Simulated scan of single mutants.
Amino acid sequence: MIWLPAALLAGVAQAWRTAVQRRVSHDLSVNAAGVVRYLYGLPFAVMLLCGYRLVFAGPWPSPDASFLLFCLGGGLAQIIATNLLIMAFAHRNFVVGTAYSKTEAVQGAILSFLLMGERLHPLAWAGIGCGVMGVMLLSAGGRQAGFVRSLGQPAALCGIASGFFFALTAVAVRRATQMVGGGDPVLAALVVLVVTVAMQAAMQGGYLLLREPEQMRAVLRGWRVSGQVGLLSALGSACWFTGFATAPVALVRIVGQVEVVFTLGFGHFYLGERMARSEVMGLMLVVGGVVLALMGSL
Rank of each mutant, 00 (worst) to 15 (best):
E279G: 04
L294H: 04
L271N: 07
S278I: 14
V195I: 15
V35M: 08
G243M: 04
V95P: 01
A250N: 08
V12M: 09
R211M: 15
F44L: 06
F269R: 03
A176D: 07
R149K: 14
V219K: 02
P63M: 13
L115Y: 13
A32I: 10
M87T: 09
G230V: 06
A189P: 00
G227H: 01
F166L: 06
E104F: 09
A201R: 04
M216V: 14
L285G: 03
V291M: 13
A81W: 09
M47N: 00
F269L: 15
S112P: 02
R174G: 11
T177D: 11
A234L: 09
A250K: 01
V36L: 09
G267C: 13
G183W: 02
G73M: 11
Q200G: 12
F165I: 09
E118Y: 05
Q21M: 04
L271I: 00
V30Y: 02
L294R: 14
V225Q: 12
G73Y: 05
G97K: 09
R143G: 01
A57M: 07
L190I: 01
L264S: 12
H121M: 12
S66C: 13
L151P: 00
G282F: 10
V55N: 06
G243W: 05
M295I: 07
E273M: 05
L115G: 01
V30W: 00
A124V: 07
A238F: 06
V219I: 03
M275A: 06
V24G: 08
L49C: 12
G73P: 09
S237Q: 13
Q200Y: 05
R224P: 00
G296S: 11
A201W: 01
T196Q: 15
V280T: 12
G288V: 06
W3E: 05
L114K: 03
R221Y: 06
V96T: 15
V291A: 15
S66D: 05
F113L: 14
L292Q: 10
V280G: 10
L210I: 11
A172E: 12
